[in-house]
Simulated scan of single mutants.
Amino acid sequence: MCSMKNILVSIVLINILQLETYLCANLNSKIIMEDAQEKYKFLITAGYRPKIDNLAKYVVSLRGKKYRRVFGDDHYCGGSIISPKVILTAAHCVCRGDNRIELRPFRPSDILAVAGTPRRLVVTEKTQALKVDKVICHAYFDPKTFHNDIALLLLIKNIYEDGVSAQRISLQTSSLPPHTKCTVLGWGRIFEYGPKPDLILHTNVYIMPNEFCKERDDDFFFGMMCATDEDDFEKDSCFGDSGGPLICNGSVAGIVSFGNGCGVPDEAGYYTNVSSYRDWIRKNGLDKLRPVNFILLIVLQICITES
């Protein structure tokens, strides 16, 4: 049987070990947090959340047909509402293939577009989960170079636009001059290999001259643009922001396409220049809706005449 003295010594030693463990854990935690604050701003990359968000209503979250564990954990890309039935996104988000010959769109039934909310993981009163009827990829999209990285999703049902939680956005019709200030937003990683946010993040970047873009990417091509903030390179789109909008002067001017990492010094994010594809968008998306509207107009005129 242990003596009282031995029991007391054991209790003292255990308390000393617990105290040492506690102090070490606190010290390591402090070091980790200081290191994290030094390396990362935890802000899309280096983003912010505005007090009044007037831009999230234009954006949708693209997801798989069924989440894995919790609602929104299957988010993989973004998109822009350009009509109640048409979503503008990047081709690499909804097309697969190693080259142009093998390129084929995802099955519409495998994609869900979620609109009406800035929250990724929470179902709100305004959340709209919409099924896709047709996927239209640019015929000359090249997955290796990201040339012509643009696609459209035609929805089965219209998005309900209330002007607050969901709203269509206009297309930029002409190329913007260098150094135009724009905003990119989405649910992409908050830093490279980091987590994705629940609440959508914004960051402000500036369109750069073509020479700047060409110097940093040999495959810079017609229909591309790049943007960054030369005073704060951490402002950038990241994985999961692809397909989302670059909004300039109230219109969607770019589609998040690719980049060399996230927030890398002396680099930039690359975007599909929407103004270069406005005719393609009208022909493959907006114009496809007009015949239905035209037929409805004829039916309405007949009904009015007969009455």
Rank of each mutant, 00 (worst) to 15 (best):
I52P: 03
D73P: 09
I159V: 14
Y193L: 12
S307C: 05
L176Q: 02
K235D: 10
Y140H: 13
L153H: 05
A253V: 00
R68L: 10
K283L: 09
D287E: 12
L176M: 08
K181G: 06
I11L: 15
N26Y: 12
S80D: 09
E234L: 12
A91F: 10
K126W: 13
Q301S: 10
A268F: 04
R168W: 06
P245I: 07
I81G: 11
F71I: 14
H202T: 00
D110G: 09
P197S: 05
N210A: 13
P197T: 03
D236E: 04
I31N: 08
L296I: 05
V9S: 05
A90W: 11
S83P: 04
I101C: 00
K144T: 12
I87K: 01
G97Q: 07
D142V: 08
R104P: 02
G269H: 03
L297A: 09
S257D: 01
A253T: 08
C248E: 10
I295Y: 03
C226I: 01
R282L: 05
G244F: 01
H92S: 03
I156Q: 13
C182R: 09
R278I: 15
D162C: 09
L297Y: 02
H75D: 01
T228I: 02
P245W: 07
E267F: 08
K131T: 14
L13P: 02
S257V: 04
S237K: 00
S80E: 08
I81D: 10
A90S: 14
V164H: 06
R49A: 09
A129D: 08
A36L: 15
D287T: 01
V292R: 14
D217Q: 11
L23F: 12
M224R: 09
D53N: 02
L112C: 06
P209L: 05
C248V: 10
D35R: 13
R282A: 08
T183E: 11
D231V: 07
K85N: 11
N273Y: 12
P197C: 07
G243C: 05
I156P: 00
Y67R: 06
I247Y: 00
G259K: 05
F141Q: 01
K181S: 14
M225C: 05
K39G: 02
Y76T: 06
